[in-house]
Simulated scan of single mutants.
Amino acid sequence: MTASKPDDGPAGVNNGAGRERFLADAAARGLEVRLVERLAANSLEEAARILGIEAADIVKSLVVKHKDGSFLFALIPGGRQISWPKLRKLLGVNKLSLPTAETAFDATGYERGTITPLGSTSPWPVYADRSITGRRISLGAGEHGYSAFVEADALTAALDAVVADITEPI
């Protein structure tokens, strides 16, 4: 399995550096991803329509700040949100938070809306909601205007992710 170049489209913002980091990391992990250029969307439902998938198949990569100052990625499917009590219990901590956009960028090298564990400038641990498993999902690809498609089970295995019940309906 190997990473592939985008289907179409010119290099985006930052000359594609984030997208290239994403693809290089996927390739290094032997992970097959398909990158597609896409239009901007104003909602999860609109993004799903643009991509031709269900909203639940769009997975957000959220950066979460641990009380000790480190970070982790939480992979959350569309239509769901982090269950803070579940995630805190899983980690055995009493405090977690979402950092500012600037802090998330500093921790990952990606802007909000493009964040992905693949190609992050720091290899933070990954926690994936169990509801994403067993299907093909879409996630950020390191650059605005692009989405990546990948098999969730292959992604979680490649990232050595902890798969657990960490969400609740929105």
Rank of each mutant, 00 (worst) to 15 (best):
S4N: 09
S4F: 13
K5V: 15
D7M: 06
D7L: 14
G12Q: 12
A17W: 07
A17F: 06
R19S: 11
R21K: 13
R21H: 10
F22P: 02
A26N: 05
A26D: 09
A28F: 02
G30W: 12
L31G: 01
V36G: 04
V36R: 13
V36P: 02
E37A: 15
E37Y: 08
E37W: 05
A41N: 10
N42K: 15
A47Q: 14
R49Y: 07
R49C: 11
L51R: 14
L51Y: 06
I53P: 01
I53F: 11
I53T: 13
E54H: 14
A56M: 13
V63N: 00
V63C: 01
V64S: 00
K65T: 01
K67Q: 14
D68C: 10
G69M: 05
F71I: 02
L72W: 00
Q81L: 07
I82V: 15
S83Y: 08
S83E: 05
W84R: 09
L87S: 08
N94R: 13
L96F: 13
L96R: 08
L98W: 04
L98C: 06
T103S: 07
F105C: 06
F105V: 06
F105P: 06
D106Y: 07
G109M: 10
Y110G: 05
E111K: 12
E111V: 12
L118Y: 06
S122G: 11
W124Q: 03
W124N: 06
A128Q: 03
S131Y: 06
I132R: 01
R135A: 11
S138R: 12
E143G: 02
G145A: 09
Y146T: 05
Y146I: 01
S147E: 11
A148F: 01
V150D: 02
D153L: 05
T156C: 15
A158W: 02
A158D: 04
A161S: 13
E168R: 11
